[in-house]
Simulated assay, not measured.
Amino acid sequence: MSKPVSYKRHRFPPEIIAYAVWLYFRFPLSLRLVEEMLLERGIAVSYETVRRWALKFGPAYTRRLRRKAPSRRDIWHLDEVVVTISGKKHWLWRAVDQDGYVLDEIVQSRRDTEAAKRLLKRLLRKQGCPPRRMITDKLGSYAAARRQVMPDVEHRSHKGLNNRAENSHLPFRRRERAMQGFRAPRYLQRFVSVFSAVRNLFVPPRSSRSAPATHLHRLSAMAVWKAVAKIAA
């Protein structure tokens, strides 16, 4: 893990700060709704304070979360979704694996081969090895980028096969509506990097979603969250 989280010069205890950040990134809640939920528990905090906590501690917690170990048997599902910011279209390019785990996301102003290449290069750098297979929709930019970046990887291009990547956009869309959009691409990039890391931690893999397994997974995830937030269990 990276260096411990510091709460110096914050008058609220770490438990409250970590709880507020968890609420904001884990559920489709606006800052004002988080403020209201804290007030119900007797904690009088303004939504602007919650915003500052999210900006400061969200990335700090995320840096201390362990990423899923990459494997050459992984299957990458790639897709992009349009996000309108200040009247201009941007694309959020996302890659998930066979379990629905978000591997990486990148906000770009283009939807072409160069943008697809940038995503693939980032993925290879972060994962350290290519996947067994890459699955996309029929956007030609993926095939062109794959030939240049990782030509030996099998590529399947079919809209029906890529439901996993397309479904991964749904939680983000719910958050986008709750937040009433984003003010700038850099704010979107900063938000999704934390949002997806928190979701990766708390949502169980598709292979173990029975009720008992889900319950145990969530208990384990909460223990990890408290550890990275430097909270006593």
Rank of each mutant, 00 (worst) to 15 (best):
F57K: 10
F12L: 12
S86I: 00
A143G: 06
I106R: 13
Q148A: 14
N200Q: 06
E105Y: 04
Y47Q: 12
F202E: 02
P70K: 10
S196F: 02
Q98W: 14
M37Q: 07
L170A: 03
R173L: 09
Y101P: 09
L33C: 03
T62I: 09
R132G: 10
R118G: 11
A95N: 04
D79M: 04
L188I: 00
V153T: 11
L38A: 07
I231D: 10
L219N: 03
P204N: 05
P212K: 13
D97P: 05
E15L: 10
G87T: 09
L55R: 10
K126F: 03
N163R: 14
W93N: 00
E166K: 11
P131K: 14
V224P: 00
L188S: 00
S208Q: 11
G128F: 01
E154Q: 11
K56C: 02
G140A: 13
K230I: 06
R52D: 15
S71I: 04
R147Q: 12
P205G: 06
P205N: 09
I135A: 01
W91M: 05
R186N: 04
P28A: 13
R199N: 08
R111S: 05
A145V: 07
C129P: 00
R63F: 04
L31H: 15
G128C: 03
R156D: 07
G181E: 01
M150I: 13
K159T: 03
D137L: 12
P131L: 13
R73Y: 09
D112S: 14
G181L: 04
V82K: 11
V82W: 14
R218D: 02
R209Q: 13
L119K: 02
S207H: 12
P185T: 00
R64N: 05
F25P: 07
A69K: 15
S220W: 06
S2P: 10
G42W: 02
R132W: 10
I106L: 15
P131G: 09
R122N: 07
R73D: 09
L119S: 02
D99F: 08
A145C: 06
F57Y: 15
S6W: 12
D79N: 03
I106W: 09
S168V: 03
G128E: 03
P59I: 08
R63C: 01
K56A: 06
W22R: 11
K126Q: 15
L65W: 07
S207F: 05
K3C: 07
L39E: 15
R72Y: 04
Q108T: 09
E48R: 14
L103E: 04
M150T: 14
V153D: 01
E176V: 01
F27R: 08
G160S: 14
P28L: 10
I106Y: 08
S86T: 01
